[in-house]
C-alpha cells in the first residue's frame, strides 16, 4: 500500500468532539462529516480533497470511543492520519476501520506538502522537501488487521476458517 497526498496540519490534542461533534452524532454520516474539525478549522471539511493526509501533534483523537471520528475522516476522503502520538481508542478504531494511522514523532512538514506514506513499512517521504521519516511500528495484531483490510474482513476470514475447519 502506497498513499500519496497533500497534507493538512493540525496541532496537539485534536479531540473526538472536534472530529465528530456531539450535536450531530445522531445524524447520518455525510451530515456529521460536514462538521468534522469545524471547531478547529471551519474550512477543513469543505476544502479537503480525496487522498489528502491529516498531520497532527500529540494525542490525536483524545476523548470519546465514537468511531464516527474515524468515519468522518474516511467519508471526507482522508487517506491517512500521521501524528506525533495517538489516543489509544482512536488509534485502534482507525486501523480497525481501514484508515492508516501512523505515529511519526520525527515528521517535519508544512501545510500543503506532498507526502508519500507506506503504512505497512512504516515509512513517510515528504516529496515537497525531499526528506524521509521512519514511523513507530504498528503492533502485530493490528498489522494483521491492516493486511486483511480492516477488522470486519479480518473477522470474516476468521469465521470462514472456523466454519471450514
Amino acid at each position: 500500500m502506497i498513499l500519496r497526498g497533500r497534507c493538512h496540519v493540525f496541532g496537539d490534542q485534536v479531540d473526538t468532539d472536534a472530529l465528530a461533534p456531539g450535536p450531530y452524532m445522531r445524524k447520518p454520516l455525510p451530515e456529521l462529516a460536514s462538521h468534522c474539525l469545524e471547531a478547529v478549522d471551519p474550512r477543513f471539511a469543505r476544502e479537503v480533497q480525496r487522498g489528502d493526509i491529516v498531520v497532527a501533534g500529540r494525542g490525536f483523537g483524545i476523548g470519546s470511543s465514537r468511531e464516527q471520528a474515524v468515519q468522518a475522516l474516511l467519508h471526507l476522503g482522508v487517506a491517512a492520519v500521521v501524528a506525533t502520538s495517538f489516543a489509544r481508542i482512536f488509534y485502534r478504531n482507525a486501523l480497525n476501520l481501514g484508515l492508516p494511522a501512523l505515529a511519526c514523532p520525527a515528521l517535519v512538514v508544512r501545510a500543503g506538502d506532498e507526502l508519500e506514506v507506506r503504512p505497512q513499512q512504516g515509512e513517510i517521504e515528504n516529496l515537497s522537501q525531499g526528506t524521509r521519516f521512519a514511523c513507530e511500528p504498528i503492533p502485530a495484531p493490528l498489522l494483521a488487521v491492516v493486511a486483511a483490510g480492516g477488522l470486519m474482513p479480518w473477522l470474516e476470514a476468521r469465521l470462514a476458517a472456523r466454519r471450514g475447519a
Partner: peptide
C-alpha cells in the same frame, strides 16, 4: 474502552 467495530469483534 473500545469502538464499535472492536465491540463487534
Amino acid at each position: 474502552g473500545v469502538g464499535a467495530t472492536e465491540v463487534t469483534g
